[in-house]
Design a binder for these strands. Structure first.
Length: 930
DNA sequence: TAAGTCACG
DNA sequence: GACGTACGTGACTTAT
């Protein structure tokens, strides 16, 4: 595992556990407890474990630790004994029942994954002081878990003490109450008052009260000693004069050292999750039943991730660079013998559409991997360079392709890739249709969607405890980045072969888990087929009208300039309209408008809804800003960016779909995102007009009507809804009619709109607040609507309760294809966090099932089009919509084929209890087809 | 790199 | 009754 660290910043919160102090306190405060099997005293250990668990698991928000350490005393001899031999001399030896618990508590700290720190010659308090001050200097918060008065001198506005037994934080007030002075004078009071427990002498006859009075009058103890002559009470004066040296020594004794030469730097104290197996083993060994159960539940609730496998370490030196035909033949025969092979391609650019193959890596076993360079050039290629480095020795591209094609297309040989969609696209451009294949990214996605990311580096870290060589280590970064064809073969081999090696290791780990986790169906019937289908769509791309976009861009620019001038005029000064910060200062500062919402960082909210409100109150500037923002968004994100995205080679725009980004199983679209092309406003729809078909062709858009509500009806099994869909009713009107008891005929559009908002709200895991916001009505009214809804559709409430219950028990929810969506935080103590998880749990089966269905349709589509003898191709997916391009003449046939495939997407394997309905239309641009 | 905003289903 | 919220995404801009 990598030694992960985290720098200390203002947002950090360091917890320092005064472990040695805790032991004594717990021993006396808690009832004695012995281990059932052998009577070993373990009371303090149990208290300690409970405390750590509570601190690490249950604290949220600001109080949540980001850095954490347990600090121990080491030995009994410290530098203070050199100052004063009697320091702590009269302490009785620790109780017999406590002695065996010291080492156990150290073990406990380690089992919890926290550093257990100590240092010869210093007390725990000195280490705590040193760490606390260092963190304070960086602006971090510090919590010292202790109630030891000796630590009170450290309290500041950043540093507090936490007494976990009384669950009380000690800050200025408490310190003042105890010592009669602030934290900065605690040392002075202590050096006068002394301490009988620690055997600090102080000044005889002077207690805390007197000391505080003196210090408050004289400032500090050293000044007091200097001016001792001025003291009026003769006895007190004499005491101070006689014992000045002793008081000075006392001062040194009570002053905590803030400059201990610590060994573990602050940033290494980063909080990390305990290793479940280690922790549970320790707790079980202690025979602590309750906390063992709690810990186990927590880890199991988070979904038991397989432990990182204990496998052979990655050895880059075992990788082979294949540059001869003999070597290549040897690898091919090895693959045929194994029956499977991990494959990875390296190219000279990131996009699969136009990049060239540079090399191929293969792996058939752990540490058994090779790299076959086919397109490497000299390191200085393309530069004016007089050094005589030559193009490296390598096999010709054609030779390698010809040799590998039969293997890659062999139905008996399984090809294994990570994010294989990319490699499929590359190979397809060299005439190879790779099949069959497995994709480790998708295996991971089926097993663990919602738990973590599924990129190779993260998976390798998580499951193999190995950090692969970073791409930027090989190719550099930023301006000096080179393309992979210029990497020297040695380096390229280590990097590329490692990718194949890691992919194979992940496959060996994940593949058997599919059945165990019961996600074989969603993998085999859905995910596995997608890379091939989607890689084809990506390669197709879509045509956009560059000139139209360019004209729009100019038009937007001009009008933006108008709004900008207007805004500056209204504001009375120039400012950057794109800066929410500056805008907030002008609206709510200069102009003194009433600010509504705040953002989570405390800044005034200037989003559209806030500006709308101000505009409605009769202010002009907000409206101007809204207008400017609309145009600015359209210009930069669409009109300009889409032109940039036109591929030089194909003249079309090729998005990239991410198959494992959305936890519900939806696809997402990037570079550019073609799933958020404007449609809701007139102005925005112009952008959609620029998505066009080739001459003689049309675009066809086919979208599922109300698919999520239909799925809600099916999944929650609501007869009224199912019947409404079977009867082809307007579902929102029907909902309104049921709720408010009015006829559908002649319904007020506003009433229907409210019902529509409620229907959407249901799918999102409704809340009164959310609904009131959406409809602009008071929360109470929203609450009444929801109540009315649930009275009319009690089955929906039952579905929601059952789903939450299921999620709480299993930590995941499922779609109709058995896709698991893991939900984190469903058991959180924090209500907001828990509610969020509950809404996710309610939404995920619906959104996820819809995603499953359209994916099934997409998988069936190419075959259906071909069977129907159609030339049309599938270009885009937008969650419930598919976009095709086809010759004008075949539009009608294509529409009926597409509609059939989409409406019957679940059959015959799965029969829904509601009909799926697809609307489809053809036009020469996307706006009109939709 | 984070925060704020806004485009979509 | 108080929490602080509608579910799921990605891109662009400003500010640090």
């Amino acid at each position: 595992m990598t030694q992960d660290t985290a720098p200390i910043t203002e947002d950090s919160h360091l917890y320092l556990i005064d472990a040695s102090g805790y032991i004594f306190r717990a021993f006396h405060a808690l009832p004695p407890l012995t281990r059932p099997s052998d009577g070993l005293p373990v009371g303090a250990v149990q208290g300690f474990c409970n405390m750590l668990w509570k601190l690490l698991e249950e604290l949220k928000g600001d109080d949540r630790p980001t850095h954490f350490a347990c600090i121990f005393d080491k030995g009994s001899y410290t530098f203070r004994n050199d100052l004063y031999p009697d320091y702590k001399a009269q302490r009785p030896p620790p109780p017999e029942d406590l002695v065996p618990q010291f080492p156990l508590i150290r073990q406990a700290a380690i089992a919890f994954g926290t550093p257990a720190l100590e240092m010869e010659g210093y007390e725990a308090d000195d280490l705590i002081a040193t760490y606390a001050r260092q963190a304070e200097e960086k602006g971090a918060r510090v919590t010292i878990v202790s109630s030891d008065k000796d630590l009170m001198q450290l309290v500041s506005d950043k540093i507090t003490l936490l007494d976990t037994m009384k669950n009380k934080r000690l800050s200025f007030e408490e310190v003042e109450a105890k010592f009669g002075v602030g934290p900065d004078k605690v040392i002075d009071v202590q050096s006068l008052a002394g301490d009988s427990v620690d055997n600090v002498p102080g000044a005889p006859g002077i207690g805390v009260k007197t000391a505080a009075t003196l210090i408050n009058e004289y400032g500090d103890v050293l000044s007091l000693l200097e001016r001792a002559e001025e003291i009026k009470q003769p006895k007190r004066r004499q005491t101070l004069i006689d014992h000045a040296d002793q008081i000075r020594v006392s001062r040194d004794l009570v002053t905590l050292k803030c400059d201990v030469p610590i060994e573990a730097p602050l940033e290494t104290l980063k909080v990390r999750d305990p290793d479940p197996a280690t922790l549970i083993e320790f707790l079980e060994g202690m025979e602590f039943r309750t906390i063992t159960r709690r810990v186990r539940e927590t880890f199991e609730a988070e979904g038991d991730l397989p432990d990182p496998v204990e496998s052979e370490g990655v050895d880059h030196d075992q990788y082979e660079t294949v540059t001869t035909e003999a070597q290549l033949a040897e690898w091919i025969s090895r693959i045929r013998k194994t029956g499977y092979v991990a494959v990875d391609t390296e190219t000279d650019a990131l996009d699969a559409v136009s990049s060239n193959l540079v090399g191929i890596s293969l792996s058939t076993n752990v540490n058994e991997a090779c790299y076959i360079p086919v397109g490497h050039v000299s390191v200085s290629e393309g530069e004016l360079n007089l050094s005589n480095d030559e193009k490296p020795e390598q096999l010709g591209l054609d030779k390698v392709i010809t040799a590998l094609k039969p293997v890659l297309e062999d139905a008996e040989i399984l090809k294994i890739g990570q994010n294989f969609k990319y490699d499929l696209a590359v190979f397809s451009r060299y005439g190879i249709t790779v099949a069959p294949y497995d994709d480790t990214m998708l295996l991971s996605f089926c097993l663990h969607a919602g738990m973590h990311g599924h990129g190779m580096d993260e998976l390798s870290e998580r499951f193999l405890s190995h950090t692969p060589i970073a791409f930027k280590e090989v190719c550099g970064t930023g301006k000096s980045q080179i393309s992979f064809d210029r990497v020297e073969l040695d380096k390229a081999t280590r990097y590329a072969a490692e990718d194949a090696d890691v992919t194979l290791r992940l496959w060996k780990l994940f593949k058997p888990l599919l059945a165990k986790q019961k996600v074989t169906r969603v993998y085999e019937r859905i995910e596995r087929a997608l890379p091939a289908v989607i890689s084809r769509m990506e390669l197709e791309g879509v045509k956009v009208d560059r000139d139209a976009l360019s004209r729009m861009s100019s038009d937007f620019s001009q009008r933006m300039a108008g709004y900008e001038a207007e805004a500056h005029e209204l504001a009375g000064k120039d400012f950057n309209l794109g800066s929410p910060k500056q805008l907030g200062e002008i609206l709510f500062g200069d102009m003194g408008l009433p600010g509504g919402k705040k953002t989570k960082t405390g800044a005034w909210s200037t989003d559209a809804s806030a500006l709308e409100e101000l505009a409605a109150a009769g202010h002009d500037l907000p409206r101007t800003i809204i207008n400017w923002r609309t145009l600015s968004k359209l210009k930069s994100t669409y009109a300009d960016a889409l032109q940039e995205a036109i591929n030089k080679k194909t003249g079309r725009v090729h998005t990239s779909y991410s198959l494992s980004a959305a936890q519900t199983g939806r696809l997402s679209s990037t570079d550019p995102n073609l799933q958020n092309i404007p449609i809701r406003t007139e102005e925005g729809r112009k952008i959609r007009n620029a998505f066009i078909a080739e001459p003689g062709n049309v675009l066809v858009s086919a979208d599922y009507s109300q698919i999520e509500l239909r799925l809600l009806a099916h999944i929650a099994d609501i007869d009224a809804l199912k019947n409404a869909f079977r009867d082809g009713l307007d579902i929102h009107a029907m909902t309104a009619s049921e709720m408010f008891g009015m006829p559908i005929e002649g319904m007020d559009p506003m009433v229907r709109r409210q019902a529509k908002a409620i229907n959407f709200g249901i799918i999102y895991g409704i809340s009164a607040y959310g609904l009131s916001n959406q409809l602009g009505i008071p929360q109470g009214e929203a609450r009444d609507y929801i109540k009315a809804y649930f009275e009319k559709f009690p089955g929906i409430r039952k579905y929601m309760d059952d789903t939450k219950e299921f999620a709480k028990e299993h930590a995941f929810v499922q779609t109709i294809y058995g896709r698991k969506c893991w939900v984190q935080g469903i058991k959180a103590k924090n209500a907001a966090q828990r509610s969020f998880a509950e809404r996710q749990a309610i939404n995920a089966p619906i959104q996820g099932s819809a995603a499953d269905i359209i994916k099934r349709a997409m998988i069936n589509m190419p075959g259906a089009l071909e069977e129907a003898g159609l030339k049309g191709r599938m270009l885009l997916q937008v969650h419930d919509e598919l976009i095709f391009e086809c010759p004008e003449a075949e539009a009608d046939t294509l529409i009926s084929t597409v509609r059939r495939v989409m409406e019957k997407a679940t059959e015959p394997a799965l029969q829904l209890s509601v009909p799926l309905v697809v609307d489809a239309r053809a036009a020469d641009n996307w706006a009109d087809a939709h």
